[in-house]
Simulated assay, not measured.
Amino acid sequence: MVRGAVEYAPSTFEERGAAVAFTTPLLSQTRVRRGDRSKLEVLIPSLSQGMGIYVVPWKAVPEMVSMTMHDRYLHDLIVKEEACSPNEIRRATLRAARRGLAGPKAAQAARRALDEDEEQGTLTHYLLILAILKAVGLESPEMLKAGIDTDEGQRLTRQLMTRAAESLRLDATLLYARLAEVAAVAAPVGLARSPRPGRLVRCLVDLTAFRDAMADWARTVPSDAAPVAGFCAEVAQHTIGIGERVLADFHRRLEAIGPLMRDWDGEIVRVRGQSARMAWLLDGWSHITAAWDVMQAEDQRQQAATINELFRILPLLPTQESSRDLMEESRHVKPAHRRSVRMLEDWRTGQFDIDAIRRIEAVKARAP
């Protein structure tokens, strides 16, 4: 069942796996990936004071760990859908939380997040229609005044989009289909000129605030956890730097909407790739930033314990994405206290760590 504990420095995002928001403390933010023969497997880090991980077949996890009802349902969803990317895992997580299995606040947050996803998709699609009309010189004050959600607005939109398709030498149906595909790809990130940033851009903003908070904590709090906080700030900064470059390229390609429609086969692959890269890059960080927000009302001792917990699940960049070996650097950072030791003891005795579960559920209540 367990392949063993190994030194783990993934070379790609896919090898690192996607973080799963389980509520069972031992499994919280463990990662799922495709292993041998494309079978799903879970990576369970820091089962002891060592730096290794356990690689466990996904279907065997319930046999190995006592799981909450929420986690069993989420586990079954992932097995059935063979979800493995960050976006797929997030959708499965929201579906599980929406059922109330992680508490009423988490259910409300999940429903709110799903509604916001739908609204963001609609907004992105609308803005892309305006962008394509502007690109071919067909801006229409009448359409804007009528509103795209009215019968008159839709009639004007169809009329103008037919003319836009002719200008681009495309079939109108094909143009609509391409815009819909771009909207689906772009919505999680958001457009540069959107009045509401996309979910991943908001995550990048939250990560910037977390970086500043960790750097400040490391500088001002006399604690054994200060070097750990400093390392968290460094990893966050490195992630932000790459994220900002990916985001700039993504927005630049979407701004050139006309060339994107014309040179479709090559450009859509690049746009889709940059959107996916943003999702992989920021995967796991929303839990970390929310967990730190929850700790703001606590004393420095509890904050230090949380920083050491976050170090255990820090999303280190794969070697192909980073010019620095953050995995090697992390080996020189010594957390003063590893909550994972107590988690292991709870796992072996079959007892749930109720306080830890409640903290995780409080984080899920803030989930984007």
Rank of each mutant, 00 (worst) to 15 (best):
G50I: 00
G50M: 00
G50F: 00
G50E: 03
M51G: 14
M51S: 14
M51Q: 14
M51N: 11
M51A: 15
M51H: 11
G52T: 05
G52C: 07
G52R: 15
I53M: 12
I53R: 02
Y54W: 07
Y54Q: 15
Y54E: 15
Y54R: 15
Y54V: 13
Y54G: 15
V55F: 07
V55M: 07
V55D: 04
V55K: 02
V56D: 12
V56Y: 02
V56H: 06
V56F: 05
P57F: 06
P57S: 04
P57G: 11
W58F: 14
W58E: 08
K59F: 04
K59T: 11
A60P: 15
A60C: 08
V61Y: 08
V61A: 07
V61G: 08
V61H: 06
V61F: 12
P62T: 05
P62D: 03
P62V: 06
P62Y: 12
E63V: 05
E63A: 12
E63R: 15
M64H: 14
M64T: 09
M64K: 13
V65P: 15
V65E: 09
V65T: 09
V65A: 01
S66K: 05
M67W: 07
T68R: 08
T68N: 11
T68Q: 05
T68P: 08
M69C: 06
M69V: 13
M69G: 02
H70Y: 13
H70R: 13
D71W: 02
D71M: 08
D71H: 08
R72I: 02
R72K: 10
R72V: 07
R72N: 12
R72C: 06
L74M: 10
L74Q: 09
L74V: 01
H75V: 03
D76I: 01
D76S: 13
D76Y: 10
D76T: 10
L77R: 11
L77S: 13
I78Q: 02
I78C: 03
I78W: 04
V79N: 07
V79Y: 08
K80D: 01
K80W: 10
E81C: 00
E81N: 04
E81A: 05
E82Y: 12
E82F: 08
E82D: 06
E82N: 10
E82W: 14
E82S: 03
E82R: 12
E82I: 02
A83C: 10
C84F: 07
C84S: 08
C84M: 05
S85Q: 12
S85T: 15
S85A: 09
S85V: 08
P86M: 14
P86I: 10
P86D: 09
N87M: 14
N87R: 15
N87D: 14
E88H: 09
I89V: 02
I89T: 05
I89A: 11
R90K: 15
R90G: 00
R90I: 00
R90V: 00
R90F: 04
R90Y: 11
R90L: 02
R91K: 11
R91E: 09
R91F: 01
R91W: 07
A92I: 01
T93K: 05
L94E: 06
L94A: 05
L94G: 01
L94C: 04
R95N: 03
R95W: 06
R95T: 02
R95L: 00
R95P: 01
R95Y: 08
R95K: 06
A96M: 12
A96R: 13
A96F: 12
A97N: 03
A97C: 03
A97P: 00
A97I: 00
A97M: 15
